[in-house]
Simulated assay, not measured.
Amino acid sequence: MIIKNKSKRKIILSFLNLTAQQDINTISTNDIIDNANISRGTFYNHFKNKIDIIRYIEKSISTSLDEKFAEVNSEYNNFFYVLTEKVCPLIYHDREFIKILYNFYEPQLFSFLQEHYAKFLIPYFAHYDEKKYGVPKYFAMSFFFRVILDAVLSWISQPIPASPEEFKNIFYKLINTSMTEMCGIVIRQ
């Protein structure tokens, strides 16, 4: 996330620093102002409150992600390439800001991301056969999207996440291997 305005960057980085030390809900505007070593006027020239900071972070990251996902071609056959080669490095770079969004919006963030990005998975289910798998298509699509999103969020929420290149290898292994195979168990109905 690139923040060109120095005062705004100072406020956001102060907020980021505070979130590493305490729960988001306990951080006050005064805490941010004091930590950033700025005047009240400077803070209020840029933001109304901490929710406004969070919304700014959300909008900035969402815009960056949308720009990368715009590179997915109309046949969607390069979705995983764009995800692992273009989006994951961006997520890695902005990981601390994404952690703020995840911690603050956890239930809503999942829904937002699913509504916003699940469209890229629809083509992969064009030939899905509900009779063959015995699972409704909408459920299989939702499950698959959540597996992808959980993998990304699990990666980025680590204290020291693997590099995007390392994560790409982990991600492909996870996606291409069944859970029962990984665990060495057989689950029978």
Results as ranks from 00 to 15, higher is better:
Ile2Met: 06
Ile3Pro: 01
Ile3Asn: 02
Ser7Val: 15
Lys8Cys: 10
Lys8Ile: 11
Lys10Cys: 10
Lys10Tyr: 12
Phe15Ala: 14
Leu16Ser: 15
Gln21Cys: 07
Asp23Cys: 04
Asp23Lys: 04
Ile24Gly: 09
Asn25Pro: 12
Asn25Glu: 15
Thr26Arg: 14
Asn30Asp: 15
Asp31Gly: 05
Ile33Phe: 10
Asn35Pro: 13
Thr42Glu: 11
Phe43Lys: 10
Asn45Gln: 06
Lys50Gly: 08
Ile54Gln: 05
Arg55Gln: 15
Ile57Phe: 09
Ser62Val: 07
Ser62Gly: 08
Thr63Val: 09
Thr63Ser: 08
Glu67Cys: 09
Lys68Thr: 06
Ala70Val: 06
Val72Glu: 05
Val72Ile: 11
Asn73His: 06
Asn73Cys: 07
Tyr76His: 15
Tyr81Cys: 04
Leu83Val: 02
Glu85Ser: 08
Val87Met: 01
Cys88Phe: 09
Pro89Gly: 04
Leu90Glu: 02
Asp94Ile: 07
Arg95Gln: 10
Arg95Cys: 07
Glu96Gln: 14
Glu96Trp: 13
Lys99Glu: 14
Ile100Gln: 07
Leu101Phe: 02
Tyr102Gly: 11
Asn103Ser: 10
Phe104Glu: 15
Phe104Met: 13
Glu106Leu: 08
Glu106Pro: 08
Glu106Lys: 11
Pro107Arg: 04
Gln108Ser: 14
Gln108Ile: 14
Phe110Glu: 14
Gln114Leu: 12
Glu115Pro: 12
Glu115Gln: 12
Tyr117Leu: 09
Lys119Phe: 02
Phe120Ile: 04
Phe120His: 03
Leu121Glu: 03
Pro123Tyr: 00
Pro123Thr: 03
Tyr124Glu: 01
Tyr124Trp: 01
Ala126Phe: 01
Lys131Met: 11
Lys131Cys: 11
Gly134Gln: 03
Val135Thr: 00
Phe139Tyr: 11
Ala140Tyr: 01
Met141Asn: 06
Phe143Ile: 00
Phe145Asp: 03
Phe145His: 04
Arg146Val: 05
Arg146Trp: 08
Leu153His: 08
Ser154Gly: 12
Ile156Val: 04
Pro159Lys: 13
Pro161Trp: 00
Ser163Asn: 08
Glu166Tyr: 05
Glu166Trp: 05
Phe167Ala: 01
Phe171Pro: 07
Tyr172Asp: 13
Lys173Gln: 13
Leu174Tyr: 05
Ile175Met: 03
Asn176Gln: 09
Thr177Asp: 04
Thr180Glu: 00
Glu181Tyr: 05
Met182Ser: 14
Ile187Arg: 04
Arg188Asn: 01
